[in-house]
Amino acid sequence: MKPANILKALLYAVGLPAVLVLIWWAATLGAKNFFVPTPGTLLSTFAETWFGERIVSDVLPSLGRLVVGVVAAIVLGIVAGLLIGSVKWLRALTEPVLEFFRAVPPPVLVPVLMLLMGITDSMKVVVIISGCIWPVLLNTIEGVRAIDPVLSDSSHTYGITGAARVRYLVLPSAGPQIMAGVRQCLSIGLILMVISEMFASSSGLGFTIVQFQRSFAIPEMWSGIVILGLIGVAMSFIFQFTERRILRWYHGLREVENAV
């Protein structure tokens, strides 16, 4: 990219946020609403609240559970999806059950899992997995089912079967669908990370934010919400970067198809 273009892209990226902060700043100029801090207050509170002990005691453990839960959900979802998608009878057998489990809202599992597993890290990770796995699993199944029959026949006649088939045909072919599932999985993961810490927890981002709210530490509470937003944005960037690399062929193909 040319420097001028980079500058333009940067302006577009930060333009709207800047305007929003400006509006926020103007709206809170004279007002003394206890529940809405000014940008300045929030900024100083943010630094005070999070750049210290809390990074180690709350932020990093939460992030750790989020990463473990999301990665486990993605791996499990893809593996199970490949299996279920490839085996016809397995699909017929599992479809109704999957529909049922997918329909259960994961937050209601928190109390149940608390009883079964106690208030532990693994319980929180399981909550994250139980909600995140569905989009990956169902998308993978769909992706595997949608493999082009001609391509499948081609692979078959050239003796590409078993593990080679999964590696060279099934995974790449289902890739676009799988990545769509992963995208959903990430946002659900963040929500569940917070929720899993809101009940009877003693640390973590979700716990801390609820704690601030209960003790009327309003600017601190807002700063926690900002942290969550930033984590979400970071995850989305990492995802887009990875997706671009893995699915370069797919975006190119789409471009060619759309140009016709």
């Binding site: 001609v150 391509l151 081609s154 060279y168 790449p172 072919s173 890739g175 797919y250």
Partner: peptide, 11 residues
């Protein structure tokens, strides 16, 4: 195959 376009791996 007859459907040449679909018999190659696009990736």
């Amino acid at each position: 195959f007859q459907e040449y376009g679909r018999s190659l791996f696009p990736w």
